[in-house]
């Protein structure tokens, strides 16, 4: 099994930069066991991050100011965030490992779990495969000989990446981004009456969940588009509640320009049925919309 694993796997050397990071991150205050765990997690994370960069996925690095080795040691996580796609959890495994249990604390917001075989001298890692998001409620056990291949991982992530950016010119050609639907499929008739409008040629909506799986606030993000002239479009972006009449108070809709500078925003008050922002954009312009509620944030990127 090991030989098969290695043939399909992707090799990454764990040289001094990998170990420098691992050492820095494992300098927390904890038991021997925990230190070792954090160290291996860090090496696995390095390997996955390296691999994703090779394959031209952009990963989001934790800034130094958010590194917390003191408290990180208490939680067995090793995540890599891929820009626009989400977080991936990395699992270091040894050459003899056949099964691996995904602990419940590895949270519900991971889009994939990648398994990284690390050799005993800790100088080589092999990305052996992955499993897409699983139901962590059951703390599932994963058989390492049944993982999906690295090739499938590329397909899986590329698909997610493409769905992450809404391309408005494709909408104009009736190519609707995955995950977006007609309003009628998402909102009930009463809500439709609120948000209906004739000024726009295209209206699409996407369901988003703010907050955690078990305690989430489902929201519809509605985007309406009308072309002003050949190079300019007008857009209204709205957030509406999906399971109640009113939006939770304090829900923020923020529009950021290409450089991440916020240019527009709207916040819901008590008993608001929706919040909206209106903007116009040139062909080729990129922007993103953050939907924030308390600690939760979902970002949607757009390109015109």
């Amino acid at each position: 099994m090991n030989i098969n694993n290695q043939q399909d796997s992707f090799k990454v050397f764990l040289s001094y930069s990998a170990h420098d990071i691992a050492k820095k991150q494992s300098q927390g205050i904890c038991s021997t066991e925990a230190t070792k765990k954090v160290y291996l997690n860090s090496l696995a994370t390095y390997a996955v991050d390296y691999y994703l960069n090779c394959m031209s996925f952009e990963t989001v690095k934790d800034r130094d100011s958010s590194q917390n080795p003191w408290m990180q040691t208490f939680i067995n996580t090793a995540d890599v965030e891929v820009k626009n796609i989400g977080k991936i959890e990395c699992f270091p495994v040894s050459q003899n490992t056949k099964y691996c249990q995904i602990p419940q604390e590895v949270a519900s917001d991971r889009i994939a779990y990648i398994f990284v075989q690390i050799n005993p001298s800790l100088d080589e890692a092999h990305i052996i495969g992955f499993t897409p998001n699983v139901n962590v409620q059951s703390a599932p056990t994963i058989a390492l000989n049944q993982l999906q291949s690295v090739d499938n991982l590329l397909e899986y992530l590329t698909q997610k990446e493409q769905a992450a950016i809404v391309n408005i010119s494709q909408w104009m050609q009736e190519l609707i981004t995955e995950g977006w639907q007609n309003l009628e499929n998402i909102l009930n008739p009463q809500q439709l009456a609120f948000v209906r409008s004739r000024q726009f040629s295209i209206t699409q909506a996407r369901k988003i969940d703010l907050g955690l799986q078990l305690d989430s606030t489902p929201i519809a993000l509605v985007a309406r588009v009308a072309s002003e002239n050949e190079d300019t479009i007008n857009m209204t972006i709205q957030a509406c509640p999906l399971e109640s009449t009113y939006l939770p108070q304090g829900l923020e809709l923020i529009v950021n320009d290409e450089n991440g500078v916020s240019v527009l925003n709207a916040t819901s008050r008590e008993h608001d049925n929706w919040v909206e922002v209106t903007l116009s954009a040139q062909v080729g312009e990129k922007f993103s919309v953050d939907i924030c509620l308390g600690e939760s944030k979902v970002t949607q990127e757009f390109i015109v």
């Binding site: 958010s66 996580t77 419940q104 519900s108 917001d109």
Partner: peptide
């Protein structure tokens, strides 16, 4: 557990929490 763990993971990365640890530890 997922609620607790997400909360924990987010909180420990907060700038003021990290600076707080640096200051005292």
């Amino acid at each position: 557990i997922p609620t607790l763990s997400s909360f924990y993971q987010r909180s420990i990365k907060k700038r003021n929490v990290v600076e707080y640890c640096r200051k005292y530890l």
